[in-house]
């Protein structure tokens, strides 16, 4: 297996200045983590544990204070690294006056696809996420679940090697959650690496092969699928025990 993502002593400190007083908050504290190609890797943690910070460092939306973050061996945040990644943020926002097809085409073009490639690819992706019938509707008419599907479509339109999903099923109904899980499994079967964060332990349990538990910006534990499958109480028990340690 080759490495898809790597955090090496990655540290992020947020500095905020107010009336000359600087407040520093540690978002991520020396994270060492390696995700292999083709894995479905989950990040678990309480609010403020550093999950979103870890993802943003990967995407070049934040710059590390110390340490390095790399994507397929390339420094995170560079154009080459960004080309290899598709990102679904929590509650994605889209311009409401465009249709799903127009929006996905826009993000495809921004990812470096040619006009012809976008024209061929967009209907395929919309079919894949179950929006083919609604491709011509304005996004202002879409439900939350449908917008989330557009979010997945824009993340995979340029066929990235790695797909980063921040709370991908947050606030969705059980049927939509089921559909999304099947979609993620099919994407992974196509050889893509999935790196996701979620508060839903049961979803992480069903999807991931490995899970990292973050606590106060630090890596508290890495759990293998076999461990939670054999443990009484499953991943939830392991997670609760880990975050409560020394609390």
């Amino acid at each position: 297996m080759t490495t898809a993502l790597e955090y090496a002593a990655a540290r992020k400190v947020y500095s905020r200045s107010h009336l000359g007083r600087v407040t520093r908050t540690v978002g991520l504290d020396g994270l060492d983590l390696r995700v292999e190609k083709g894995e479905v890797f989950g990040l678990l943690g309480l609010n403020g544990a550093g999950k979103t910070t870890a993802m943003k460092l990967l995407l070049g939306l934040l710059f590390p204070t110390a340490g390095t973050v790399s994507v397929l061996g390339v420094k995170a945040g560079t154009d080459a690294a960004k080309r290899a990644v598709g990102y679904l943020p929590e509650l994605p926002y889209f311009y409401p006056y465009f249709t799903a097809a127009e929006s996905v085409a826009f993000y495809g073009r921004l990812s470096g696809m040619s006009g012809a490639a976008v024209r061929d690819r967009v209907p395929v992706v919309l079919e894949q996420v179950g929006l083919a019938k609604h491709a011509g509707k304005r996004l202002s008419e879409y439900s939350k679940g449908m917008l989330q599907r557009v979010g997945v479509a824009q993340a995979i339109v340029h066929e990235p090697e790695i797909i980063v999903l921040d709370e991908p099923v947050s606030g969705l109904d059980p049927l939509a959650v089921h559909d999304f899980r099947e979609l993620f499994v099919s994407i992974n079967k196509a050889g893509k690496t999935l790196f996701l964060s979620s508060h839903s332990i049961s979803d992480v349990e069903k999807l991931c092969s490995r899970v990292a538990i973050l606590k106060s910006g630090r890596l508290a534990r890495i759990v293998q699928q076999a461990e939670w499958q054999s443990a009484t109480g499953g991943l939830e028990k392991i997670f609760v025990d880990t975050v409560r340690e020394d609390a």
């Binding site: 995407l59 990102y87 943020p89 926002y93 889209f94 921004l110 990812s111």
Partner: peptide, 14 residues
């Protein structure tokens, strides 16, 4: 504010 910037700048867009 809408966080649309995440979708734009996570692409290879200088």
């Amino acid at each position: 504010e809408t966080k649309n910037i995440y979708l734009l700048l996570s692409r290879p867009v200088p």
